[in-house]
Design a protein around this nucleic acid. Sequence first.
DNA 1: AGACCTAAGTTGGATTTTCCAATCTAGATG
DNA 2: CATCTAGATTGGAAAATCCAACTTAGGTCT
Lengths: 153, 153
Amino acid sequence: MGVAVDIDARRCQIVRTLDIVGEKWSLLIVRNAVRGQTRFSEFRDSLGVPSDILTARLGTLVAAGILEKRSYREPGSRERSSYHLTESGLALKLVLAAMVQWSDEFNPTVYGPASILADPETHEKVELAFVPMGDPHSDEVAILPGPGSLATW
Amino acid sequence: MGVAVDIDARRCQIVRTLDIVGEKWSLLIVRNAVRGQTRFSEFRDSLGVPSDILTARLGTLVAAGILEKRSYREPGSRERSSYHLTESGLALKLVLAAMVQWSDEFNPTVYGPASILADPETHEKVELAFVPMGDPHSDEVAILPGPGSLATW
DNA sequence: AGACCTAAGTTGGATTTTCCAATCTAGATG
DNA sequence: CATCTAGATTGGAAAATCCAACTTAGGTCT
């Protein structure tokens, strides 16, 4: 992201995270990947991101190990590329969920939440909280469409 | 941030959060505010952010209710402005902590973590996890300097 | 008074990033 | 060999950021 080039600023975890996903569109691409999108045209059409920017962002995310570039072949078409979340990329759900939760509390809409954080198995609502390190807990979450959602999830 | 202007995209909590803190420097200003900084010159000098950009970001953060503009007066000086986190701004620690945790796991440095998430009272290490909604839990966290920290905290 | 100091903020112009529409690529099909 | 299509590239316009110099407005000093 070009922020804070001096060597000790880069030790900051927040700077290091923003360096990777702090540019415009990056986190929204990850969000849509979490929703299951994998193709260039899906990201471009659903987000409205300019295709040259999308090319650049996908490259950055692949280089950072957040997305993995694969090939797929639709019957009757040539081989094309698709982009899939890695373990690292999937773990960014933590950051996305934090934004969802903050927005629900401090910047809600009149429509209700568009996304709801839930237990992947029981679908009970969950929330992010600070727990003692090492205690058994869940780092898995499902992000389900809520009442404020218009999106095809 | 100008991303996704269409009406239903703005229902997304992630878009709504990025609209407020997704611009360059915004989250770093919040980070430094969490560290206790309040003054224009502190933000400018510690981050190296251009002063015109800082003016714009402080304005956005104040307008969004994340910072509150106050006056202070140093003995022998005239009245000046300072910027203080609101409850809403303090709650962004959740997002910052998520970035810290993600970076620790997937993008660590050789120096060890610069920041450590800890219980504000016991200083035991804590981590973000998904817990059942409504269960008793902590949303308080202290962000302490770790072994990788060079910053004057 | 008036010269000087200082934190906060503004201004003009260069640089960088983003945007947008048009174009290109390369294998598949008719 | 013309046509189709998802993925990508290109050139030029627009917007955001950067940078250094300057301004503001009250305070101190003499």
